[in-house]
């Protein structure tokens, strides 16, 4: 029973982080038709910025906020500096090819990932370093009994919960949220409604950058920080996004939690070295059984 609860709570906390990563991926995929493989590279970079600030005696929360802002800026920069010129280029023989139009941005995002990793290595040396958390990672006690959940888990779950609520309000209650949904669904009608689809898209990149930056801040107290630490998070997040249906924001969050439980239960009941294989099997199963994802709509992947 204890191990079940441990797996459940740690799965919820991990799943919350995966949900953020997956949400970030889906935001950009829906808005710009790009799967951003550099996403967690951006998060790694902003987490290093936070780490540097904490070393320079700034408070955790100052560093936290600065990292989120940098995440937004970096996301917007990637769109403005690279993706927008790349996808709007006309008269390119290569980009006239259907498959290349999706392939080239993927390659570009890999280039950014490589550059960000190398820069992080140059600026902050390659070795692993710890990253603080504002809450002690001890199990919560009621009287003398240890609960299966730690204070840090609660912090992670709380932070993600707040983010998800804010995101939901943004998308369903604000005009900008409506504009963002509309431009993802039908850019032409949205432009004809006088909305600057390009700017909306850049905002999507910025929100995605913020979400993944938060994921970086939440995961590194457990995994430590190095240029490569967050690679795994990207892969799990991608799997979660596919499981949820790349086109659905709700689905991506759901997929994140499902992956959290899968990984956590494999860790507790099987062995940690089985985790990658579990992810691969899960991904392939998801693709074969329900390629449109749990909440994805079928028409999106018709061709």
């Amino acid at each position: 029973m204890t191990s079940f609860l441990t797996a459940f709570f740690s799965g919820t906390a991990q799943g919350a982080i995966y949900a953020l990563v997956s949400l970030g991926l889906v935001l950009v995929w829906r808005g710009a038709g790009v799967v951003n493989f550099a996403q967690m590279g951006q998060a790694m970079f902003t987490t290093y910025i936070a780490s540097q600030m904490i070393q320079n005696n700034y408070s955790y929360w100052t560093a936290f906020v600065v990292a989120l802002i940098c995440g937004a800026a970096l996301g917007a920069l990637v769109d403005l500096g690279l993706m927008r010129p790349l996808t709007s280029r006309k008269n390119s023989k290569l980009l006239n090819s259907q498959s290349m139009r999706t392939t080239i941005p993927v390659i570009a995002s890999l280039g950014i990932l490589g550059v960000l990793k190398s820069l992080a290595g140059i600026f902050w040396a390659g070795e692993e370093r710890g990253f603080p958390s504002p809450v002690a990672p001890n199990a919560i006690k009621i009287g003398e009994t240890n609960l299966a959940i730690t204070g840090f888990d609660l912090f992670v779950i709380g932070a993600v919960f707040i983010t998800l609520v804010l995101t939901t309000i943004f998308f369903t209650k604000t005009g900008m949220g409506l504009a963002m949904r509309a431009s993802a669904l039908n850019p032409e009608v949205t432009r004809l409604s006088g909305i600057k689809v390009g700017s909306v898209r850049t905002l999507g990149w910025a929100i995605s950058g913020t979400a993944s930056s938060l994921a970086g801040l939440l995961v590194t107290p457990r995994t430590n920080l190095s240029p490569n630490t967050l690679d795994l998070l990207l892969i799990v997040g991608f799997t979660a996004a596919v499981v949820g249906g790349l086109s659905s924001l709700m689905g991506s969050v759901l997929g994140g939690f499902i992956l959290g439980y899968v990984i956590s239960f494999v860790n507790v009941y099987s062995a940690p070295e089985n985790v990658f294989i579990a992810i691969l099997v899960f991904l392939l199963l998801a693709l074969f059984i329900r390629p449109q994802g749990i909440l994805g709509s079928k028409e999106v992947r018709r061709v």
Binding site: G175, L178, A179, A182, L185, N186, V189, T190, S193, I195
Partner: peptide, 12 residues
């Protein structure tokens, strides 16, 4: 935009 509601289309 068929996935949005009628009111949202008008709001857009």
């Amino acid at each position: 935009i068929s996935q949005l509601s009628v009111a949202e289309n008008i709001e857009l």
